[in-house]
Amino acid sequence: MKRLQAALLAMSLLISGTVLADVSVPHLDIGKGGHCVNDPKYMKLNHGDLLKRQRTITVHQGVIGRYSLIRCVNCHASKVNHSVLGTNSNFCQGCHVYAAVKIDCFECHSSRPETVSETLREVAK
């Protein structure tokens, strides 16, 4: 019995160990670089609320704002796989896996930067 317990304990430690290894503080691929739309520390804390506030304003009033999700993706998509998702070093996915946050935004929103659309040209100006 004791031995079984010990084995179980060892196993669970092993499992949690590998899980921890998987989600250890990720090295995030910031993407294109430049300056974030606000202070990165501020963004780290508030981006969820900012995005959700922005979406209401944009959808209901037609104002494209500072916290547009398109812009985040344009900047933060990795230069390797051109996306903010895909691997645990990709910007949005990596940190959320680490922080155990689930978002559904990219079921609808593109996780890749726009290539041809007008907005990109505007932002790039």
Binding site: H35, Q61, V63, I64, R71, E122, V123
Partner: peptide, 16 residues
């Protein structure tokens, strides 16, 4: 605020 205003100025429409 570094960079913050860039977008707002570059962008046309900010009227609801």
């Amino acid at each position: 605020a570094p960079g913050v205003l860039l977008y707002d100025l570059a962008h046309g429409k900010d009227q609801p």
